[in-house]
């Protein structure tokens, strides 16, 4: 393997750097920044206060201007470091700003107003993580609801997907019956019918079933995924038929064969499908957007998109909630990445 690569881009004479080596590392390091950078920036921004978010140029880390309560003023005042005419530096609080001149007071002498050109002052800032970006949506908004809706949809849909698809895969891999090929073709053919093609009539059917504005209307259309049947069937084909014969001789019913023999032995494929299903359902957007129109039913994705589309976007909340939405997927990525990548490489399916 490595030789293949070495041969395609091998170092001439193994001494010094060939241009391909340079290119490789430029590409990789560049990739590292482009792929991870945006997400890291998002996480960093999500801890900034609204004021810090509005700043340009932005800072890398979240800072806030220190404030001090000064006698005689109701609100806490921003603190600045001021270079005085004599060259010394001191910390003053800004009362108000008129043009390029700022009226400031020393916290020690609240009555004495000092006028300073704004070029001669810099805000006194400390790093501060605005965790309220996270806590407030949980307490004041419907965010917990959205989170719960997303979790409910993801877990339920995944469980049903696993059961329904593994049953179908069992029938299609271990039984001979008339119409088996037809059923298989039918399932594969539905790969050609993505949601975007059938969303209009699907909406009318879901409505007719009374599932409009119902989380089950989000769940049910997604659970009979052809990909799932396909992955599981391929795997079950590798389970020896003699095992099933043996179980039949052992007086097992067909249901027991499915439940006690086939399912445990298909565990690795079920795990792959489960991971995929969790990611798919967690990330689903267009269909929930169509089916759910009542706020309290929104999933995270729909809620986020609706709030971010509002005229007055509250970016500090949006960013924080985006991070929360990312967390399960990032966890999957960190712990199960190898599982997924081999799953994709093995089946070529997403």
């Amino acid at each position: 393997m490595s030789r293949v690569a070495e041969f395609i881009f091998r170092r001439r004479g193994r001494s010094g750097w060939h241009w391909t080596d340079v290119f490789t590392w430029v590409w990789l390091i560049g990739g590292l920044f482009i792929m991870f950078g945006p997400a890291v920036w998002l996480v960093g921004s999500s801890f900034k206060s609204p004021a810090a978010l509005a700043e340009f140029p932005p800072t890398i880390m979240p800072y806030v201007t220190q404030k001090a309560t000064v006698e005689g003023y109701d609100k806490p005042l921003d603190l600045y470091e001021v270079t005085m005419p004599d060259g010394s530096k001191t910390v003053l609080a800004e009362v108000r700003r008129i043009g390029i001149v700022s009226q400031m007071v020393s916290p020690d002498k609240p009555t004495e107003i000092v006028k300073v050109k704004i070029a001669e002052r810099t805000p006194v800032r400390t790093m501060s993580f605005a965790t309220s970006n996270y806590s407030e949506p949980f307490t004041h908004f419907d965010f917990v609801r959205y989170l719960w809706n997303s979790v409910f949809v993801t877990v339920t849909a995944t469980l049903i997907t696993l059961i329904v698809n593994s049953m179908a895969a069992f029938a299609l891999s271990k039984y001979e019956f008339r119409g088996r090929t037809f059923a298989m073709l039918l399932i594969l053919a539905t790969l050609m019918v993505p949601l975007s093609v059938i969303m209009v009539p699907l909406y009318s059917i879901v409505s007719a079933l009374g599932l409009f504005n119902n989380l089950w209307g989000v769940i049910l259309p997604t659970v009979a995924t052809p990909t799932g049947v396909f992955i599981l069937r391929q795997y079950m084909l590798t389970i020896p038929d003699e095992l099933i014969d043996a179980a039949r001789m052992d007086k097992a019913s067909e249901w027991q064969i499915y439940w006690r023999i086939i399912l445990p032995l298909t565990a690795p494929a079920l795990a792959v499908l489960a991971i995929f299903s969790v990611v798919w359902r967690w990330n689903d957007f267009l269909w929930p957007l169509i089916v759910l129109s009542r706020k309290e039913l929104y999933t995270l994705q729909v809620g986020l998109s609706i709030y971010s589309g509002e005229l007055n976007v509250q970016w500090h909340f949006i960013l924080a909630m985006t991070v929360v939405t990312m967390i399960p997927v990032v966890l999957v990525f960190i712990f199960l990445q190898r599982f997924i990548t081999t799953g994709i490489a093995g089946t070529g399916l997403k």
């Binding site: 945006p38 994705q301 939405t325 997927v329 990525f333 990445q337």
Partner: peptide
């Protein structure tokens, strides 16, 4: 596919955004 140090790490780097939801991608 070249002989790389920590190839699975680099593979993961490029794979990372695949799992993100389109909404998150759009917002980022």
């Amino acid at each position: 596919n070249r002989e790389l140090m920590a190839r699975s790490f680099w593979r993961a780097v490029f794979f990372f955004p695949v799992l993100l939801s389109p909404v998150v991608v759009g917002l980022i």
